[in-house]
Amino acid sequence: MKNALSRWLISIAMLLLGGCGMTVTWQEEVQLSDGRVIVVERETVRVSGGDDLAHGGSGSTPKERRIRFEFPLGSGQRVEWRSSKSDSRQFPESPLVLDIVAEQPVILTINPISEGCEVYSKYSFQNGSWIKEKLPDAFAKQATNLYLKSGPSMPSFVDIATKNRDNADIRYFRTLKQVGPRRVICSG
Rank of each mutant, 00 (worst) to 15 (best):
A143D: 10
E43T: 14
D34P: 05
Q90L: 11
S6T: 11
Q31A: 13
I160M: 15
G35Y: 00
Y147Q: 09
R89T: 04
I107H: 01
Y120S: 12
E41V: 10
P105N: 07
I185P: 00
F173Q: 15
T61V: 12
R65W: 00
G180F: 01
K177L: 03
S84A: 13
M22A: 12
S86K: 10
E118F: 02
P92R: 02
S83I: 05
H55K: 10
Q31L: 05
W81S: 15
P72Y: 00
R171F: 02
Q31W: 02
A4R: 09
I100T: 08
V45S: 05
I38K: 07
S153C: 07
E70V: 10
G57E: 09
S86R: 14
L15I: 13
R42A: 08
Y172A: 06
F71I: 05
Q178Y: 00
G18A: 11
W8C: 13
I170P: 15
R7E: 08
E70C: 11
S48L: 04
T23Y: 00
F69W: 05
T44Y: 01
E103T: 08
I170Q: 12
Q31Y: 02
G35N: 13
F71N: 06
S156Q: 14
L32Q: 02
E115D: 14
V119H: 01
S86D: 05
T25G: 01
R78T: 08
E29N: 14
A140G: 06
V30E: 01
R174N: 14
D169Q: 12
A54L: 12
E80C: 02
N111F: 00
V119S: 09
N127M: 07
G21V: 06
S86Q: 12
G180E: 03
S6K: 15
S83E: 05
Q142I: 10
D52L: 11
L17Y: 03
G57R: 10
L73W: 06
P72G: 14
P72Q: 06
K141D: 05
E133P: 07
L5K: 15
R183W: 00
V40Q: 01
G59N: 13
V101L: 11
V45A: 08
G56N: 12
I113M: 07
D137P: 13
V97A: 04
F125T: 03
W26K: 14
E115A: 14
E115R: 13
R42T: 02
S153L: 08
E43H: 11
V158F: 00
E118N: 14
T175V: 10
V24K: 10
E41M: 10
E133A: 15
I160V: 10
A138L: 08
R65A: 03
